[in-house]
Design a protein around this nucleic acid. Structure first.
Lengths: 171, 171
DNA sequence: CTTTACCAGTATCAGTTTGCAACTGGTTGC
DNA sequence: GCAACCAGTTGCAAACTGATACTGGTAAAG
């Protein structure tokens, strides 16, 4: 109600919505890790979010229309969180942030490989990945023709696992 | 020293650096408003940042190498803040955030017009603007040939002023 | 040369947010 | 029917935020 905006600038408004240390990480985990349940987001979080913060951020992401919620028919207690179109369209923001972080910050190899590929892939790859997200989160048929090879999501995941495996072998 | 990272993920690391409600607004004002002095950033801030927060954020932006500081020869007390290459390369992040905010949030017309143009202009326009920023902040000669028309920065500013003028006339 | 305006911050302190840890109330699988 | 799992909620100390006042100095005007 009394939530007054500091200004009507699009950058400011975006920051008021997702400009904190956790919201975009939740979106990231839903996008790239396909975490859809509260417990998944909680326990598989690389950064170790705490449950009250997760609950609070999910509430605002829901209020903002960035994610949606639905019953999980397989389990009376479970709910499924999905990205909305608005949430899916945060991908380019995340991709640019990932690219910048990869270039300038002290990124670990296994967690940086996705950023590298996504950055090299550019807007075309992002659009393809967003189409895949529309399929898994919105239940939409893909507009774009399915490419011959594996999905963008699968390629990113495979590249990540390859690095993890190599590092494990090296010890 | 004891500043431990939550994870080595590029998105997380980026958020740890600029994932708060003010840092990117300071960068925005330096980029699009050419605010270079403390007082300019303080008093011309659309959102009304307070001096302690501004001082604190400038300190971390300096620590992170996103902005640099130099004496202003014209005034013994003034310093000039400039964007580094690393800071200039935050432009695509800001542009994507601006585009998303413009599309989904309650942006005012005069503050949204730059976002609209920048979004429509795409990566090519961003690259051109970044070259202009390298000129004004790094003192570099432009690599790209100077286009016939006015600068991107000038075009954005002119579009903003046009909207302001029209709204003033209307009432 | 002295008064006023401007400059870059710092200090203080109340209010808010964060985040760990423990807990609630329920469901599912064995 | 009992252990494990589910989605959160609660309590509380510590950290962070932000409005306001203030410091110590420089520049410009009269």
């Amino acid at each position: 109600m009394t939530e007054q905006k500091r200004s009507g600038c699009p950058i400011n408004l975006t920051l008021e919505v997702v400009g904190d240390k956790w919201s975009l990480l939740i979106v990231r985990d839903m996008m790239f890790g396909n975490r859809r349940h509260f417990r998944e987001l909680l326990t598989k979080s690389e950064e170790g979010i705490s449950s009250n913060i997760l609950a609070d951020r999910l509430k605002t992401l829901l209020d903002q229309g960035i994610v949606t919620w639905a019953d999980d028919p397989s389990h009376k207690q479970k709910g499924i969180y999905s990205l909305s179109e608005q949430g899916i369209e945060l991908l380019p923001v995340l991709a640019q942030m990932a690219g910048w972080g990869f270039k300038y910050l002290d990124v670990t190899e296994e967690l940086g490989i996705r950023a590298k590929l996504l950055s090299e892939g550019g807007p075309k790859m992002w659009a393809e990945f967003m189409d895949e997200l529309r399929e898994t989160h919105l239940g939409m048929r893909r507009r774009r023709k399915r490419k011959a090879g594996p999905d963008v999501g699968e390629r990113l995941q495979a590249a990540y696992e390859k690095v993890v495996a190599r590092k494990a072998k090296q010890g």
